[in-house]
Structure formats: structure tokens, C-alpha cells
Amino acid sequence: MNATVARLTARSLLGRRRALLLLALPAVLLVLAVASRVLGGQDDGLTVGLLGGFAVATLVPLLGLIAGTGAIGPEIDDGSIVYLLAKPLSRFSIATTKVAVAVAVVMAFAAVPTLLAGFILSGTSDRLAVAYGVGALIAGTGYAALFLLLAVLTRHAVVVGLLYALIWESLVGSFVPGAQALSVQQWALAITKSLLGDRAAPLNVTSAVGLGAAIPLLLVLVVGSTWYAGWRLRTLRLTSDE
């Protein structure tokens, strides 16, 4: 980890209009939560629907995509990453730092709003807010690491990332059950489900994989993606105008 890399990454990630973009989605979630609570009262089924269907399924992957690719993609595109790479710094520490910043952004703009929305909708009932908040944080960590690696590997990281989140996790997953075993969202739901304990079944919270598979898979994803991103940074080719 390197504090200077973290500061520069955070400044460019949160600078200018991008921060507004990051705020829009969680704002929608919170507005929906307040509206549901005011209009419909407390309804744990609705909480599961909104947190599982919107927060974990849409908000978290999108924020993970914005933060993960945004933490390194623009620098690679415009060539300014040369100022980090032309330094006696371990490439792995650059990658680790950038993943950490992306995770912090996802936490602030997706996991914390999910937790807040849970409290607004259901209070402390059934630990729903905490279970989904933790699920969102864990899913967000996985997405941030994965999408940061994608941004190192390809200039089309945002498109590839969207295809993964929308096509693979949502569409293919709903037709081909096996595909769900390779889904960050399902791994995170396994953790949410286990935090809910006995209340998971009546609330219809399910996950395609068990906790025993989800945790190792998440660890492999986060550590592996970060390590490989660092390794690829060692040989990153910088394009020039020529």
C-alpha cells in the first residue's frame, strides 16, 4: 500500500463530475427506501426485494464497475499512469492500493447506503440491514478487484464489465443455473443468507452456492485479481501518439 498512490487515485476517482455520478445511484436507493417505508410501512418482503433486487443486484455491480475501472482505466488511457510506473515502486503495491481505494469508494457509495436503506425499511428487524450491508460490501470488493483487473487488461473494460454484470449474472444466470456458481452476486448472497440464519428461508433469500464455496471463491477472486493486475502492470505497454 502506498499513501501517495491512494491519494492520487482517490482525487481522480472522486474529482469533478464523477462524484456526482457516484452519488446518483445510492440516492435513488435511499429515496426508494424512504418512499416505500412512508407509503407501505414496514414490510420485510419488500426490504428483501429492494435490497436484493436493486442494491446488491444493480447498485453494487455498477458502483464496483465505476470504481474498479475508474481507479486505473483513465490513467492507462491517457498515459498519466507513467508517473506512477516510472517510480521505484512495486507494481503489486500500486495494484493493491488502487483496489483498496476502489473498495473504499464502493463501501461509501454502495455498502453504507444499502445498510442505511435496510434500516430505513426494516429497522433492526431480522438483522436484514446488516446482512445486506455486509453482502453489498463483500460483493463490492469482489467487483472492484475484478473490474480493476479488467481495466488493466483491456481498454473496453466498462463494456466487458457491463456484459458480465448484466448478461452473465442476470440473464444467463436465470436460464442456466450452473452459471450462477460463477457469480460474485451469488457468492455475496451466500454470506447474506448465512447472516440471516433461520430467517432466510421464510424471507425467500437464496443463493446458488453454499458458504463453504463462496468464501474461498471470493478470496481467490480478490487476491488473484489484485495479484494479476500488479503482474500485468509490470509489463504494461504505454501507447504513444506516434
Binding site: 490513467e75 498519466s80 501518439d241
Partner: peptide, 23 residues
């Protein structure tokens, strides 16, 4: 090549203009 330590002795001025320009 692949020697990060070399940058203690090299200063590089790239052709491209992009920097971290929010600072």
C-alpha cells in the same frame, strides 16, 4: 526492462500531456 529500481536513476518526460490534472 522490468526493473523498477532503475527509476531511481532515470527521469522520464513523456510526450503525452496527460497528468493528474485535478491537483
Amino acid at each position: 526492462w522490468r526493473n523498477e529500481g532503475i527509476y531511481r536513476r532515470i527521469g522520464l518526460v513523456p510526450e503525452r500531456e496527460a497528468m493528474y490534472d485535478v491537483v
